[in-house]
Design a protein around this nucleic acid. Structure first.
Lengths: 220, 220, 220, 220
DNA sequence: CATGAATGAGTCTTCATTCAT
DNA sequence: TATGAATGAAGACTCATTCAT
């Protein structure tokens, strides 16, 4: 599992900051992508400067072009790269046939809480939300690889619900409703956090309460 | 005695104003703001060109600067201008003391469905979501004038709930949960609509079902 | 004599700053020229804004064009206007046949000290020095109307010198040498005054001492 | 697995660098400064176009910004750069203790005649005179590094004068008087040269005659 | 005569992209 | 591979000039 990128690559950098340490192949690409995520997140696609990406990645500007043909491609590949590793997990969450539906939903929300909020993936989602409209290929990729799969997973879960522990039928029609508070959390944290901090954990708990209206357990 | 200098050898004038169509006062400002909303929505703040705003508003580039000192100010004023008219209505929705809470919530959602989706306000919210992080003044304005008031309104409504028709307590703690599907609708329509159109009406209906879990009436 | 323009025209302005007081004909032109001198002096020709000239003159921008066809012409006419009144005096100084040469030179220097330094004429000269190269018509006007006449006056004076109270022959060949310290004073005051104030009076006195090398009286 | 986005539909690249002729390091900076002096001299700071500077230097417009952050800084650095080399010589002229004062003054004037008039330094001085008032940092630099040192040098020379070959006392109080005709020469050549050419050599000779009033030798 | 809103050419500055080294 | 100096198209903003009122 590749998430939780360490702040610095494992190999300790030499003392002098200028020493042109030889890096493992792929390490540079990694550094570039990480820097790109930071810079694009901070300024948005159009206002981000490749100069900044390069210097934050510790490479020369021209080096970027050895890995990516242009700014747009760097942006899109970067956003794919971060998404890919999460997809497997997401799929696994949905496919556990034996887990009771309520618990499966809870697991989904917990996954979001721990594996998205506060991680690079949060920034990625924010960028999709901000820039997706201007990058149809990117939006398509996310729609197909993440969104559609996520929605399908929820539908699968809901389909297993035979009683009415929660409103499975409504959820089945609009699995988006499961994710809406998660999206809201990300947007809030990017926009209003400084005016009113949001306790995502508690919000998700409240979300579960409403979804399961007392039939499920309270979150710990 | 005003001794005459030899005549200046007539050089072509560097610039000059052509006859402008005089319009009603305020009409131009209106046109500029409308054009700005369109252009900023389409490209985002950084990538929007004031040239485009001007030509779409039917004015010269310089004219923009008669109304707004710079791009940023135009952007912020535009986004505040569109918000203002909605605030009164929002306030009214919350203050109707006699309306049953469930109906008040329903009215709020209906308001959103008819007065936001498909109107300029939808674009405005999308821009707040996309650019808010880079415009703290703007985010603050929206937080204080729109968000905080909206949340307070919901809390007021929830406080009137004495039975447990819906999970008033959870809503009271996180009124955001009422709005989350609305935010999702806006984001979805801006990003994934072309891949999977979203029936906002039906989504809101499902949202209500979950919120009221059968205690309220189904929407028609 | 028209120099020493009062800061405000004699007629007291009405209380409200906005009242469109009717002015004497020519008064507006006067105001514009005065404002132009200030603004051009402060910023130089290219960087001066006609907007500033207009507002400082208390007229609308378009009004400038009722009096002058363009910026350049305003500039040149303004610089002529201020020069003209001084020319008569300058001529008088030179033509007093009975005055001893040394005294005539002293009178010339005194004239400069009192009628140029600290008056609008100082600014005018500074503008000629700064911008003359870019305004050949202006330079020509000044050369013919002011410089040539001034030099001729000095030559006339020097020609009356029969003894050798001062080096009349050198002065006759280069009357500019009489004026050089005056030019220096103006340039200095415009450029270095804030770092080392220049006592123009004393400098002129020293200049006289050197010119007359002890044969003339010391200035008081 | 790095899932491939569909190929970006190749749009024309917005810009791109053509093969530059690699030159010796510093050569470009040199060329820019030289071009800047020409262009600023010709038009003054405000009216000078960086486009012209660039093309006269044989570089692209953007290249200017690799060397100087903005127009103003280019202007100031340029004017300081040209001054620096002359300062050493100036200092040497003043420190020759054995040279008789009259000869030292003569050497100073000769230096000006050959090392300033007709050289880039003449343009520099003209720019200081024209623009100094608008560039206090620049004026301060010139005052401290050139003017003050020049005046001090003359004072040092004058202090060595024990007889009264020339009016050492007046010169000591106002060393500016030594330089005034030099300033006048520069201003004249920039402004009136086309109407009446000035023989700077002869003017300086006359200046010396007056300063030394016959006690010194005539210039060759 | 006077106004000042409107115009649009012109200029500084930025930054994605290229390529000689 | 890697570099970073160089390029030049593009865009924000200014301001002399015009003209409907």
């Amino acid at each position: 599992m590749e998430s939780k990128l360490p702040e610095k690559p494992a190999t300790a950098p030499p003392a002098g900051g200028k020493a042109p340490r030889r890096r493992a192949p792929g390490e540079r690409q990694e550094a570039i992508l990480k820097a790109a995520l930071d810079v694009f997140s901070e300024h948005g696609f159009a206002a981000a400067r490749l100069d900044d990406v390069a210097s934050r990645a510790g490479v020369a500007k021209g080096t970027l072009y050895l890995y990516f043909p242009d700014k747009e491609t760097l942006f899109e590949h970067m956003l794919q790269g971060v998404a890919a590793p999460a997809l497997a997990q997401l799929a696994r969450l949905a496919s556990a046939d034996t887990v009771p539906p309520a618990a499966a939903i809870a697991a989904l929300l917990a996954f979001f809480e721990t594996e998205v909020i506060g991680t690079p993936r949060e920034k990625v989602i924010r960028l999709i939300v901000s820039e997706g409209a201007r990058f149809p290929r990117l939006a398509k990729f996310y729609y197909e690889e993440v969104i559609a799969k996520g929605l399908a997973a929820v539908r699968t879960i809901a389909a297993r619900e035979n009683h009415n522990n929660f409103n499975a039928e409504a959820i089945s029609r609009f699995p988006q409703l499961i994710f809406a508070p998660l999206l809201l959390s990300i947007v809030w944290r990017g926009t209003f956090q400084q005016f009113e901090p949001l306790d995502v954990s508690a919000l998700i708990a409240a979300h579960k309460e409403i979804l399961l209206h007392g039939h499920g357990e309270r979150n710990p």
